[in-house]
């Protein structure tokens, strides 16, 4: 297990896009220490910000976190990264595979464009978790995002594929969602599913509902039973939502209208 121990709060935002177990495998500690991670003209390197200990394994632990650590695990395709603390924006951006775990909270745009692997945030996630960044076609795009705390606004904005689990979420969850599944055990904020085209949003409760979502009864669907089994296998607390009947709303009728919102009846 390789480790990077944070020396202290970084003086500027740092970009850890290229810091993955695979990338570090071929490097000595001295070489790794010279990798540029700073975002100012001062040219901060990995060695300036972290004490480095490498053993060539495919698991990396970052000891100590900061909201200034951007794009942690963004290039991850195999192996695992565990951050003991907080991270900044774009956690696991475009990640293709592997396991990424953050014991603290994450900044905005966690898991944006991630196509594979599992991203777990044990604390809270900022706005746009699983959401698209500026000019991107899609947010979460096939990976699994587990948020054990609260997610901010715009959870899964323009999400295209994959699964998001969260304890609660802010306003405009599943906005402009293209497809995929979001399950929130607690409450959603106002106006979930704004501009939602397809996809499934399941939640314990919700704030103000859009006038463009219409109730379509309490169907007993095979899909929800299969989803419950998947969640059970993952050991997710959200499975408790599936104990009784679910009321289904269809929307957003302002767009394609093939999305659905389920809440316990």
């Amino acid at each position: 297990m390789s480790t990077l121990r944070l020396r202290g709060e970084p003086q500027e935002r740092v970009d850890l896009l290229s810091i993955t177990p695979l990338a570090l495998k071929a490097l000595t500690e001295a070489e790794a220490g010279k990798l540029a991670i700073g975002t100012s003209r001062r040219g901060l390197t990995l060695g300036d910000v972290f004490e480095i200990s490498l053993d060539g394994s495919d698991s990396l632990v970052i000891e100590g976190g900061s909201s200034r650590l951007d794009r942690v695990g963004a290039a991850l395709s195999e192996g695992s990264i565990r951050v003991e603390g907080d991270v900044g924006q774009r956690l696991g951006e475009g990640m293709a595979g592997g396991t990424l775990t953050v014991t603290g909270s994450a900044g905005p745009y966690a898991a944006t464009g991630a196509t594979g692997g599992t991203i777990t945030i044990e604390g809270d996630a900022g706005d746009h978790a699983g959401g698209a960044v500026y000019a991107a076609k899609a947010g979460l795009d096939g990976a699994t995002l587990v948020i054990k705390g609260r997610a901010g606004d715009h959870l899964g904005d323009r999400m295209r594929k994959g699964l998001i689990l969260a304890e609660s979420a802010g306003a405009f969850a599943a906005s402009r969602m293209i497809a995929g599944t979001i399950v929130v055990s607690g409450a959603l904020g106002d106006h979930p599913g704004y501009g939602m085209r397809r996809g499934t949003l399941i939640a314990g409760s919700h704030g103000a509902l859009l006038p463009t979502f219409v109730e379509t009864g309490t169907p007993d669907l095979v899909f929800t039973r299969l989803l419950a089994q998947t969640l059970k296998r993952l050991g997710a607390s959200q499975v408790s939502l599936f104990g009784g009947t679910l009321r289904r709303y269809s929307g957003d009728l302002a767009t394609l209208g093939k999305g659905e919102l389920f809440v316990p009846a």
Binding site: A208, L210, T212, D252, L253, A254
Partner: peptide, 21 residues
């Protein structure tokens, strides 16, 4: 406008324009 604001109102209007409502 809708109680939810202009964005919600525009969505509601578009649903009628599309013939979905």
């Amino acid at each position: 406008p809708e109680a939810g604001g202009l964005a919600v109102s525009l969505g509601h209007l578009r649903a009628f324009a599309k013939g979905h409502l």
